[in-house]
Structures are given as structure tokens and as C-alpha cells.
Design a protein around this nucleic acid. Sequence first.
DNA 1: TATTTTTGATTGACTGATCAATCAATAAAA
DNA 2: TTTTATTGATTGATCAGTCAATCAAAAATA
Lengths: 195, 195
Amino acid sequence: MPKVGMEPVRRKALVDAAMRVIGDHGSLTVTMSEIAKQAGVSPALAHHYFGSKEQLLIETVRVHLQRLRDSVVTALREAKSPRDKLSAVIRVSFQADQFAPETIAAWLAFYAEAQRSEETRRFLVIYARRLHSNLVANLKALCLAGDAARIAEGAAAMIDGLYIRQSLRSAPISTEASIALTEDYLTTNLNALKG
Amino acid sequence: MPKVGMEPVRRKALVDAAMRVIGDHGSLTVTMSEIAKQAGVSPALAHHYFGSKEQLLIETVRVHLQRLRDSVVTALREAKSPRDKLSAVIRVSFQADQFAPETIAAWLAFYAEAQRSEETRRFLVIYARRLHSNLVANLKALCLAGDAARIAEGAAAMIDGLYIRQSLRSAPISTEASIALTEDYLTTNLNALKG
DNA sequence: TATTTTTGATTGACTGATCAATCAATAAAA
DNA sequence: TTTTATTGATTGATCAGTCAATCAAAAATA
């Protein structure tokens, strides 16, 4: 079995396993054993590559935010007009894998963790800021800067809120309905400014 | 010290202590010792009265949702018109103690816990439904039922979203700004329907 | 009133389980 | 032979939960 160059393979497997276990469990109180088992290696190996459980979890949130970022970048590139770019940002936020119950459970756990882990908090703040600035940048092409900031704040809150409500799985909202609601928020606000 | 009739006093002290410790800690991974210490009693006594840590935590969320409910009921009674009642619901959601960082941290922890504890989830679902139905009931007096449901969904999501964003403490939004944003959402939507 | 009994309140000490982290040992490539 | 990958076994710490013992108020009884 021992071949050279396993490090990146194992790191990825462990990070993916962590996300899955956290999502299933709906909490960050997961054991290294569970994660390692899910990744098909021994707990000791997880420590070998990550040093500590905390580091593995931080790496996990970092990697997944990076993937989310990549999705946004791609979607933004494909959209042409500012209005299309706004829709693209919304669409990515609610895309299937992001809106899956286990993914939401995992994000929720990370948000809670951010209360204690400064590093986790920093990553989430960066994500929040990026969402906000993506929205503002494109809104500015459609309305005044002051209004853009306000509408972006509202839209970002609505997106996050739809997520957290989804996590309760009571009266679950479909992806389409979530997108429609957020789109509607933008449209109504922009129209109100014109009128 | 041992006087009769301490049970209600201790239960209350422990529930309050739990909320404080959870808020400080920003997580439900708090020890019975911490909670008991905060309440000024021994860990054994906490077990004596609550049977288990889980029961104490469930009781904690139950008690605090009950308090929130009482605030809403009072505020609704004081408001006369449907539009005023909508404002009252919003105002209570963001009232000072609810919007304090530790309180938000605690709620976030409970949302995460709901992924695992069916009982915690049930309480939070009830709260979410109540918020929704309070909004719908009063919106129906101002627009069609279908629009009322949609607007209520959006407003509830926005309220929850403003909470979760507050938990990150990056670009913190003031109570007033949060209220204004939600009020604005309602007003803009209702106006759009008239126009 | 004085004395005894009962009962609720309370804790320190203990147990058993869990888990992160370590480490020495092994196996296979280079 | 040196280096990299890997694990089983172990350790030390933490914690929920238990239990037997103590203490003092209240209730019953003399």
C-alpha cells in the first residue's frame, strides 16, 4: 500500500470525509475516528497530516468556501449584464449541492464554531463580505450607491435566512422558490426606485 | 442553607446560567460543571433536578422561547392596526436583549443542536411557524392571501438572516438598521402591490 | 415546649466512557 | 539505506452521570 505522494490524496479524502460526517451529524462534535473511518484511514493518519482536529476542521471550511468561491467566479463570468450577474450570484447560493440538508447542517455548524474559532470566523467573514461586495458592485450599475448598499444588505440577509430556515426542515422551501423570493426582492426594490 | 421549596429557584438559576454560559461559549459544548458553577451550585445538583444535561438544555431553549413568545404577545396587544402589529413583531425580534451577541450565539447553537435533538428542533419549528403565522395573519388584512404568504416568507427569512449575519460580528448592523431594513421590505412589497 | 422523625437540599468523591493526541513499530518504496 | 506511509496500542484528560453521606428545616410526637 504505501506509495509515495499520498499526502494530497489523503488530505482531500479527509477534508471530504469531514464535511460528510459533519453534515450527517449536524455538528462539529465529531470524532477524528469517525472522519478517518469515513476516509478509509486510521485516526493516527489524520493527525499525522493535520496535526490536530482543529486544523482539519479549519482546512475543511477553507476548502469548501474556496469551492463555493470558484462556483461564483464561474457563474459571474458567464453572466453578461449586471442584472444577470446578480441572478448568477443568487443561483449559485441556492444550487443543488449547496442547498442539500447535509451541506446546510455543516455550514450551520461552522457558523456556530465561528463563535469560538477565530480562524473559522475569519473565513466566514470573508465569504460574507464577498457575497456583499458582489451584490453591491452589480447593483451600483442599476441604482445609486446608497441604495445598492441597502439592497445588498437585505438580499444577503434573505439568502442567509432562507438557508437557516431550510435547516429546520419545517415547511421546506424549494430551491426555485428561494431563488424566486430573492429575485423578487431585488426586482421589487429596483422598480420602487425607478417609480 | 437547606430550606424547603428550593426546586423552582434552582431550576430557574440553572436555566439562566445555561443560557449565559452557552452564550459566552457560543456553543452547546458546555459542561454541567460550568453551568452549575455559574448558577452557584454543584454539578450533582444540576443532575438531581434535570436528570441529564440534554434535559437541562432542552428546558433552557423551551424557557427562552416562552419568554420571547410572551414579549410578542404583549407587543401585539399594544398595537392596534394590522400594519402596527407587523411593526411590533419586527421590533420584538430585534429588541435589545434578543439582539445581544451572546443571545444570538446561544440561538445559533440551538439551531445547530436542532440537527440532532428532535425535541430542540420541534421547539424551534414552533417558533418559526408562530413568527410566520403572525406575519401572515396581519398581512392578509393588507393584501391577498397568496401575496401575504410570500411576503411573510421573505420577511421571516430576512429577520433570521439579519440574526445570523450579526453572529459573525463583521460589519455589525444596528438594531435600528435591521428594523428599518425589514420594515422597508414590507413597505416596498405592499406598495408594489397597490401600484 | 422539647424531642424525635422524616424529608428535601446538597455535595464530594467516584466511575466508566469517550476521545484527542502520541509513539514506537512495520512495511514498502526510492 | 533512507525516507514516506501507515497503524495498533497507549496515555492522559475530560466529563456525564451516580451514590452514599450530611445537614438543616419541618412535621410529628411526647
